[in-house]
Design a protein around this nucleic acid. Structure first.
Length: 175
DNA sequence: GGAGTGATGACA
DNA sequence: GTCATCACTCCA
């Protein structure tokens, strides 16, 4: 099988990484089993000025991970209930990440973390087999015409400029 | 449509 | 220390 994507994959512009992640396989290894799911939905959070990004508030203990090196996990807790899985992108000291919003069979960012048993324990970890969580190339190259670009979800508070950016990527197979 | 839930950051 | 806010999901 294919190998985990190297950190160099994530050391690129965030939007490009987000789009390329569509169709890749999210792999979770635990309890002696390895599960693979195709990524079907992802969102980009990019830079200091993106008001929808936690990093726009500056460098804090929570957002520190987003400023770190690419290819790591950024996992945080929201609404007192849900875990979110992000992958850090871009260079060191530049805050950016891609939120994995959905995988095949499990739409919804909080549902997939629940299904895969992803919690704070996996925050700020390198995506690798050692971690038990990584991403591989997908079985088929996804054509850009099969990827929809839409506004991000749940970020109206960020104002019209940032909430309207088409930084959400969704796989839409056409048959 | 609205509740639930607790970490986080802002302010003092 | 307090307070408001939240990158969501579920049930009505």
């Amino acid at each position: 099988m294919s190998k985990p994507l190297p950190s160099s994959f994530f050391d690129r512009p965030t939007l490009q990484v987000a789009e390329d992640l569509i169709g890749c396989m999210l792999v979770r290894a635990r309890d002696g089993k390895t599960e693979r799911y195709m990524i079907t939905e992802a969102e980009a959070y990019d830079g200091f000025d993106d008001l929808a990004s936690h990093a726009s508030k500056g460098r804090t203990p929570r957002t520190e991970v987003m400023f770190g090196p690419p290819g790591r996990t950024y996992i945080y807790f929201v609404y007192g209930i849900h875990w979110m899985l992000n992958v850090v992108t871009g260079p060191q000291d530049y805050p950016s990440a891609v939120l994995i919003r959905g995988i095949e069979g499990i739409p919804g960012p909080a549902r997939l973390t629940k299904a895969l048993g992803i919690t704070k324990d996996l925050n700020n970890m390198i995506l690798s087999k050692k971690t038990g969580l990584w991403i591989e190339e997908g079985p088929a190259k996804i054509s850009s015409s099969d990827i929809q670009k839409t506004p991000r979800i749940g970020v109206d508070y960020a104002g019209p400029i940032w909430s309207k950016k088409l930084w959400r990527f969704v796989l839409s197979r056409k048959n």
